[in-house]
Every structure is written in C-alpha cells, then in structure tokens.
C-alpha cells in the first residue's frame, strides 16, 4: 500500500476496510453500471448518437433534468422552511407533522402517482378549482413537477434538520448583539452553516427525481415531446425489445446525472474550504 494513500489512525484495519469498501462498491454499484455500458457498445457510434439525439429522447432529457432541477430547488427552499419550523418551534401536532415528512419515502410511488392524479385531474379536488383559471396540472409537465416535488421533499428536510438542531441560537444572539441585522444574521451566520446540508439535500432530491418513474407516469400524460420523462422512454424501448436502445438512453442519463452530482459535490467541498479553511 503506498504511503500516500495511508493516513495514520489509532484504529487498525485500513487494508481490510478499504478492500471491503472497494469490493462492496464494485458489486453493488459498478458492475450493474458497467453492464449498461457494455450493452450499449453493441451499437456503433452513429447508431448510438441517432438513438440519443432523437427529438423525443432529447425532449425527455429536457423534461427529466429540467423538472428535477426545479423540483429539487423548490424542495430546498421549502424544505429549509419546514425544517426550521420543526426544529425551532414547539407547537401541538409537531411530532405528527414531523412524521408526515417521511410519508413520501414510505409510500409506494404508484400510490403517490394515483393519489396525485386523482387530486389534480380536471375532476379532482384541486384540479377542478384550478380549471376555471385555465391551469391544468395533471397530464402536463406541471404535473410531473408536482410529483417530483412530492417525492423529493423528505431529503432536504431530513438532511437540514440535524444541522439546524445543532446550530446554537446563542450564535444568532451574539450576532444580534454585535449589531447584525436579521438578514445579515441569516445570510452570514445561518446560511453558511446550513449550506453543506442544503446542498446534500438538493443533490439527493435531484437524484431521486431524475430516476423517478412510478409516481410520474400516472400524472404525466406521457405525450411524446411534451410530457414524456426519460425513464418512460427507456421502458418504452424495453417493451419493444430494443434493449440496446434502452441502455443507450440509460447510459446518457447515467453520465449526465453523474456529472451533475459530481459538480454539486465539488461545489460543496469548495464551499467547505472557503468557510473553514480545511480541505
């Protein structure tokens, strides 16, 4: 083992644990991903390019990544709000509300999709109230967004909550005594502390949204070029026995997700360095 890789630690077992980590990661994550890439190589490059740049596929990438980013951003804002209320205030029903947050985790996604569609279709409770204003939610890209916001909510709340709980309110008080305005306290004291957790929550919510299938297909309407998500394109290709086409689209999605998540992680470590001066 080269010395560079090794950092002295009081606990032994570095070789063993590293070996285990590598084997485990390979088995669980790398092998399936490699299988996708290998399957894709059955296509020549022009075939691959034609498959992944077909108008329907491109439109689905735009929708899947666009709606997922917006949904993750919305969840970051409102998730922070929810986490703030749940950790900072005591009120009746708080525990119940806290438990509610996890529901989108626990609910089978198909159930969520059916419930949301029933609510937002033009004869549903919410849908019929929006109808007079010409707002259609179910069977439009807006419906996709709502489903993605729904399933992504717990990620931000649950990552921010413990950090918020640890954040001592003395910090804010001292900021106030030193003459900081409320906005300055938030912007200079609270936000930097929460930023790593917020970014993690954002990444998780985004990753979940990109891959989401079950809840979205019910509410999306699945119109080509308009409301078809990429996972649906993959399933459609599979259903036509087009295995290589499906894996081609999947590999692009994989790569794009990886790049995005990698970028967000990079942002995070840059942010950490900026505020703590540590690597």
């Amino acid at each position: 083992m080269p010395i560079l890789l090794r950092r002295q630690s009081v606990l032994p077992g570095f070789d063993l644990t590293l070996g285990f980590t590598l084997a485990y990661l390979s088995l669980i994550v790398l092998v399936p991903l490699v299988a996708i890439v290998i399957k894709t190589t059955a296509l020549t490059f022009p075939q691959f390019w034609a498959t992944v740049t077909a108008p329907r596929v491109l439109a689905s990438f735009r929708l899947s990544f666009g709606a997922s980013l917006i949904a993750a951003a919305l969840n970051t804002v409102f998730g922070l709000l929810l986490a703030w209320v749940l950790t900072r205030y005591r009120f009746p029903g708080r525990r119940f509300m806290d438990a509610l947050i996890d529901l989108p985790f626990a609910l089978p996604t198909a159930v969520a999709g059916i419930a949301l569609t029933a609510l937002y279709s033009s004869n549903g409770w919410i849908g019929q109230m929006l109808e007079p204003f010409g707002v259609k939610v179910a069977y439009t890209p807006l419906g996709v967004l709502i489903a993605l916001v729904f399933i992504g909510l717990p990620f931000v709340v649950r990552t921010v909550q413990p950090v918020l709980a640890d954040l001592e309110s003395e910090l804010e008080e001292s900021a106030a005594t030193l003459g900081a305005s409320r906005w300055q306290t938030f912007y200079k004291i609270i936000l930097p502390t929460l930023l790593p957790a917020l970014l993690t929550g954002f990444t998780l919510a985004f990753a979940r949204a990109v891959g989401e299938y079950g809840s979205v297909i019910f509410i999306a309407g699945n119109m080509p070029l308009v409301s078809e998500i990429t996972p649906l394109i993959i399933v459609t290709k599979l259903e036509q026995y087009d295995y290589t086409g499906a894996t081609a689209v999947a590999s692009v999605m994989l790569l794009a997700s990886f790049v995005l998540i990698f970028a967000i992680n990079g942002l995070q470590s840059w942010n950490r360095k900026r505020y703590t001066g540590l690597g």
Binding site: A118, S121, N123, Y139, F218, G221, N222, M223, P224, T236
Partner: peptide
C-alpha cells in the same frame, strides 16, 4: 386529438372513466 397516452389499456380506461378525461 389525444391528450393523454397511457401505457396500457386499463390505464386508459381509468383515465377516461375515473379521471373524466
């Protein structure tokens, strides 16, 4: 003239009958 493309026949029936589309 088709506003929703479900993936299966039962889904389409549900969309028409229960969702009123």
């Amino acid at each position: 003239n088709v506003p929703v493309l479900d993936s299966g026949a039962r889904g389409a029936t549900t969309t028409f009958v229960e969702r009123g589309q």
